[in-house]
Structures are given as structure tokens and as C-alpha cells.
Design a protein around this nucleic acid. Structure first.
Lengths: 150, 150
DNA sequence: GCCATGTAGATGATGCGTCATCTACTGGTG
DNA sequence: CACCAGTAGATGACGCATCATCTACATGGC
């Protein structure tokens, strides 16, 4: 821990700007989604992944792998979503330990209703005003950083 | 809400990569700070802003403006930090409604101990491996987006 | 001086995220 | 087949974030 390499001024500014953008953007997206459709960003992500498979069901561990969430977070979240009727749990025949998470009709209705407004908000708050180069540079940067997170 | 402009493939990939990086990075930073020094990222931010003024004290509304937090989040957070002995509240003579938040000796010790490891982690997980151009491009992007969030 | 409106800040309820821990089943090795 | 390491998932406790609401003081207009 001795003599750390501090951030230089460019890095400082970039880091502060990133943190600030991140916090504000997430807050805004969450609020819009919550207000317009009663879903959180987390609910939205779960439902997107479920609708990606046409059977509308996944094993929790697959969901966990895709979302990169903590296992217990996922489990708690599914419990809450189940309580609200957005998903349902089913037994898994192949693996006695396992389970399936299945999207309900209500879950489908919820995400169908929520998606347009959410995408519109992402576009309005984030992509509008960015150039194509900025978009590809961001993807590149995120991929670089992700590569070092594993 | 009719006929939304969906994200094109570049935007999709960039957005997913960003969300994923964001989530994983925040989680890692939080875990490191928590494990090595018992502080959360939120605690860290509060203490940084307090130590920025050499009196080590601020009005809550200033802190709120700087951090861009919800007022009640800040208030709750300060209560918890106070309970842990990191800050203290003091009466404000000029304004009967107001208060001061003051960093304690223990708070100073905590952030002094935490900072090197945290900065090192930010550097290792984020800045190492990014070019100078990527860093300035990020700052630019974040500033652009922030400009549209107000 | 009195009232209306605004501002500083606290609080209770409730949902979310993490950690530690637990149960139950699987699958390979002797 | 008995054992044991590993994997799938759930749960309780606790700190965090948001919303709605509340108190108390400040301030400007009459």
C-alpha cells in the first residue's frame, strides 16, 4: 500500500465525470421506468433475458451467468418478482436441486408496455448527441475494462 | 410512446457493454473498499468532500449539491456515518434550520487509510490499459451526456 | 407584526444488495 | 454402494436508496 500512483489531472477529471454521469443516468432511468411502468431496471433486465428465449424460461444459474449478478441477489430478486406476479418458479425434472424461472403473462405484458418508453429514454438521455465514433469508442472502452475485470 | 426508435446494433452492443462494465466495476470497487477499510464507496465520497475543505465541515445542502444525491439519502447516510463515528453533526449558528456535518478524527484516519488502496484499485481495474485518448474521450462523452441530463 | 411561501433537514416505511450460512441433490472415486 | 467434494438454490440479517411526509425556521409582502 506504500506510495500509490495517484491519478493525474486528466484521469481525475475523467473519473469524476464518469462517476457523476453514471450515478445520475442510472437514477434517471430507474425513475422513468418505475414511474411509467412500475418496473425497476433490474426487473427489466430479468424480463428481457427471459423473453429472449421463446419458452420464456431459464434456469436461475443461466440467468445469473448472463446478468453477472450475485447468486443471492438473483434469488432474492426472483422472490420479489414472483410475489408481484411477474415470474413463476417451476420444478426442474432433470436436476432435483434445480428450478426454472418462467415469465408469466403479466410479466410479458409488463415488459411489452415498458420497453418503448425505456428505449426512448435511453436514446434521449444517452445516445442522442453522441457521434457514431463516440458510441464505438465507448463499446471498445467497456470491452477493454471488462477484459481486465475477470 | 408509439413507434419508438429502437437502438441499432452498434448502440445495442455499446449499451450492453456499458451496463455490464458499470455494474461489475462498481461491485468490485465497493468490495475492495469494504474489505480493506470498512468503508463503502458512498462513505468514501462523503469523506473526500469533507476533507476538501480544511475546516472539515460543510452544510448538508452543500454536500448534497456536490454529490448530487437525494436529500433524504444524504440525511440517512449521515445518520449511519454518525453512528459509526465517522462524522458528527453540529448546530449552525447563522441559520436556525441548518446544521453542519463535521469529519471526526476517526473519519480522517479512515479515509487516509483507505485512499491509497482505493486509488490503486481504480487504476488497476480501470485506467491501466486505457490510452490517453480513451481517457479524454471518456471525459468528453460523460460531459456530453451530463449536459443533457439537466 | 402577521401570514404565505419557501428552504433545511429528519424520519418511517418499504424495496434492494451483500454476506454468511444452510439444505438438498449430483457425480465421481474408492 | 458408500463417501465426499461440488453445485443449485434459498434464507436471515443488516446496511443502503427512495418516496412520502413532517417539523422548524427564514423571508418577503401586506
Amino acid at each position: 500500500m506504500n506510495s500509490p500512483r495517484w491519478l493525474d489531472p486528466d484521469e481525475q477529471r475523467a473519473w469524476r465525470a464518469y462517476l457523476r454521469m453514471q450515478g445520475r443516468l442510472t437514477a434517471r432511468l430507474n425513475r422513468q421506468l418505475q414511474a411509467d411502468s412500475g418496473l425497476s431496471l433490474a426487473d427489466y433486465e430479468v424480463l428481457v433475458h427471459l423473453t429472449d428465449r421463446e419458452e420464456g424460461r431459464l434456469r436461475p444459474y443461466e440467468l445469473q451467468r448472463d446478468l453477472q449478478w450475485e447468486q443471492s441477489r438473483l434469488s432474492h430478486h426472483l422472490t420479489r418478482m414472483q410475489r408481484r406476479g411477474l415470474v413463476r418458479r417451476e420444478e426442474c425434472a432433470d436436476d432435483g436441486r434445480g428450478a426454472y424461472v418462467v415469465i408469466t403473462e403479466e410479466g410479458r405484458r409488463a415488459i411489452t408496455a415498458a420497453a418503448p418508453g425505456h428505449v426512448e429514454t435511453v436514446r434521449r438521455l444517452f445516445f442522442d448527441g453522441l457521434t457514431r465514433e463516440q458510441v464505438t469508442a465507448l463499446e471498445r472502452l467497456a470491452a477493454d475494462v471488462l477484459g481486465r475485470l475477470d
